[in-house]
């Protein structure tokens, strides 16, 4: 194998093609980026909630409401994320059903 890296060449190829065909790269965030960030945020909130629960029960934090608020935020974030995922999957399925 003489150093051929076909997969690695893909993004470069795509960019060439795109530039040639005159398709504009989206400026600003792509949907994928938004989604990834949202997932990361949700995960961060889950972690914060876990920390808050531990802190309250080991006596580090004396604030019960801080813990409850952190848990609720994580909860809502997770539910919201799940709905977004469901909708995205539905949208994908719809697109796949389209006769092109």
């Amino acid at each position: 194998m003489s150093g051929i890296d076909p997969i690695g060449q893909m993004p470069g190829l795509i960019q060439q093609q795109t530039a040639q065909n005159g398709v504009r790269e989206p400026d600003g965030e792509t949907f994928a980026q938004t989604l990834t960030q949202a997932v990361a945020r949700t995960e961060g909130l889950q972690d914060k909630a876990k920390q808050a629960v531990q802190a309250f029960n080991t006596g580090e934090s004396q604030s019960l409401h801080d813990t409850m608020v952190a848990m609720e935020k994580a909860d809502i974030s997770l539910r919201f994320m799940t709905q977004v995922r469901n909708k995205a999957v539905d949208a994908y399925k719809q697109i796949m059903r389209m006769q092109v």
């Binding site: 019960l64 848990m71 539910r79």
Partner: peptide, 26 residues
């Protein structure tokens, strides 16, 4: 007692969350 009930509630919500995800939010 309050702290006991708080911990029980937190545990309950934890399990609720897992069950929710298993149901895929439906």
């Amino acid at each position: 007692q309050i702290r006991y009930e708080a911990a029980a509630q937190m545990l309950s919500r934890h399990f609720d969350k897992i069950k929710f995800v298993i149901r895929s939010g439906k």
